[in-house]
Each structure stands twice: as structure tokens, then as C-alpha cells.
Design a protein around this nucleic acid. Sequence first.
DNA 1: TTGCTAAGTGGCGGGGTCCTCCGTATCGTA
DNA 2: TACGATACGGAGGACCCCGCCACTTAGCAA
Lengths: 186, 186
Amino acid sequence: MPAQRADARRNYARILAVAEEEVATHGAEASLEQIARTAGVGSATVRRHFPTRHALLEAVFRERIESLAARARELAEADDIRAALLDWLDALTVYSATVQGLAAALLRNGELDPEHANPCVSTLAEAGEPLLRRAAQVGAVAPGVTPVDLVTLVAGIALTTQHHPDPATEATRLLRLTVAGISPRG
Amino acid sequence: MPAQRADARRNYARILAVAEEEVATHGAEASLEQIARTAGVGSATVRRHFPTRHALLEAVFRERIESLAARARELAEADDIRAALLDWLDALTVYSATVQGLAAALLRNGELDPEHANPCVSTLAEAGEPLLRRAAQVGAVAPGVTPVDLVTLVAGIALTTQHHPDPATEATRLLRLTVAGISPRG
DNA sequence: TTGCTAAGTGGCGGGGTCCTCCGTATCGTA
DNA sequence: TACGATACGGAGGACCCCGCCACTTAGCAA
């Protein structure tokens, strides 16, 4: 018994491809109806493969998220662990701020589904955990900071810069402030 | 010639009152149609008084914003200016995180209207400017931080904690991290 | 008090979205 | 080839935003 029929797989791929473009253009609020139309399928088919908008966004950003996670694992081996952590945060920030809808996908998570967290966030958080832990060991990071905090703060920053003419550099600037602290000595 | 007719003023007030409740309940995405229905007016009347959703949100949050601005002016006279700044940021954070839609209203600003900024933000930023300036003079704040940065960062934090069970405390926690810095020494 | 006029109103229709249901076409297999 | 499960997509309901436009009514003037 095939886990999935051939046409289903085909449609899945087409929808995903169209959704990537559409989300890149119109952000996280892209019209599902429009995606269905462009992909040449019925709107019900879109819903069948991606029950919620978030499921679709998750699939769209899966690769990028995965690559960021890989980057984190890589950097966890670095000599200068603080620099590595900052590198990762930078990458995370630029990605989130640049790619329309990514930040929203990271945050608009289980608002109504409190039991298990957003897979995007947890993937990143898990991947960043060793990096953060090593950084904490050498005191390169404030106590009490969790991996989820990092992802959350970055996503927040990215969201706020959506409307900015140059989101990436503005987001990076705000990240620097957050890393160094608004009012550090205290 | 009356600037506005009596019934118009009456409707304005009713709509605003209903909108406050509705936004408090359903956040920034509250249905304008529903507001009109509850207020017992046609949807066209809502649009007439508040051409855009943002205009309505702005009106809804005007008082709160104003009170936060007043607080900033007050605190600008304090002896311990750093503590005053942190106080204000705390208040700002709790407000934004608690009141459904306020953060969104602060951010979802002139996305399509780049020429003049969001009045909510500018009101707060202007009010916080003296406070921030005094803090900067005594070195209690990182260089390069603008009033708008403060409001932006706080709003970002508030947005990310919308879904959290206890937004206010979570937001406050994240604010503390941001104030102290994720990785301060560097 | 009684018009008059323009400001103000609200219902309606058009266009769009999301979502569900269900008859039908298609795939993979026997 | 024929059959059954799987997947499809169109229709339809509910909702929303938006603009238009004929009607009402407040408030001034005679």
C-alpha cells in the first residue's frame, strides 16, 4: 500500500512551489485561494495537504530553518564561542528580517494549540542549545537566557522591521542593541 | 457652521466605546462589521469616522498612549534617571503585552504610508526623548539608542508574547534580558 | 415655527477569503 | 480489465471589506 498516491505527491509539490513564491511576495498573509488558483488545484486540495496556514508556512520555510539549524550545529564547535553565537544570531536575524513571513511563521505559532510548540521554533531552539550552553559556560551570555528566548527575540525584532525600507540592516542594528544591552551596567 | 453634527459626534463616541471592548476581546483584528453591528450603526458609518483600521486602533489606544507619555514626562524629572527609564520601559512593556492589539497598533503602522510615521509611536517617542537623553548623559544607556528604538523593541517583545499564558511577566522577563543585554561583555 | 440644505446615515451589491461537504475522477492493485 | 480506496475540485455558506447612493435628519434662517 502506497503511503501516498502519485497525484497527491505531485499536487503537494506544486502547491508548495507556488506557496513559496506567493509567500515571498505577499508575506505570511498570502491568500490560500490564490495559491490554489495558481497551482491549478482546488482550494480544498490545498487544505487537504496543509490543514492550517501555519502548516503551509512551516513547510515553506522548512529548508531555510533546517539550514539555520545546521549552521548552529556547525558553529557550536567553534573556538571563539561568543563570536560563534553572535554569528548565528546575525544569520538568524538577517534571514528572519529578509524573508517575508518567516518571522511571522516563527511567532504566529500555537496560539490556539498550547500543548506542543511550534516546530520551527523548536527546531531552531534545539539546534542552538549546545551553542548557547557552551557560551553560557564561559560566561559569554547572560544567565537565564534560553534558546527559545533567542529565537523569540530575534523574531520579534524581525517583525518590527518588516515595514522598514531596509529590514535586514535595521534588524541587525536592533539585534546589536539587544545583545549589548540597552542599559547594560546596572 | 458646526464642525460636526450632534448625531455624528454621538455615533463617533458609540463606535469608539464598542471598538474598545471589541479590540480588548479580539485584538487588533477585530471585525469592523461586528463593531458596527454592536454599535447599531451601518458599517459605512464606521468607515466614515475611521477611514482605516489603524485610525480606529489609534483612537482606541489614544488615552493609554497619552497616559504612558505623561508618565515619561513625569519620570524625566526623577533623581535616579536610570531607574526612571527602566520604570518607564516596564510600564510600556506591561501595557503593550497586556492590552490586546496595542503592540500590533504600535507596529502595524505606516507600512504603506511611509511619509509620516505612526502617531502612536511618535507620541511615545517624543515623550520618552528627554528621559532617554538624560539617561544617555549619565551613560546609563548604550550609545546610538533612539526613542523609537525603545518603543520598537518593547512592541516587538510584546508581540512575541501575545500567545503566552502570562504575557505580562514573560514580556517583562524578555525586557530585562534586552536591557541587560544577551551577551553584554564584549 | 417652519422650511431648506447639506451633512450624515445605512442598506445593498460586488469582490474577496476561508472553510466544509460531497459527487466524481483517478490511481494502484487484484 | 475491473474494482475499491484515495484524492480531487466545484459548489455553497458564512464572513469580511469596500464603495455607491438614495434617504433621513440636524441645525440654520426666514
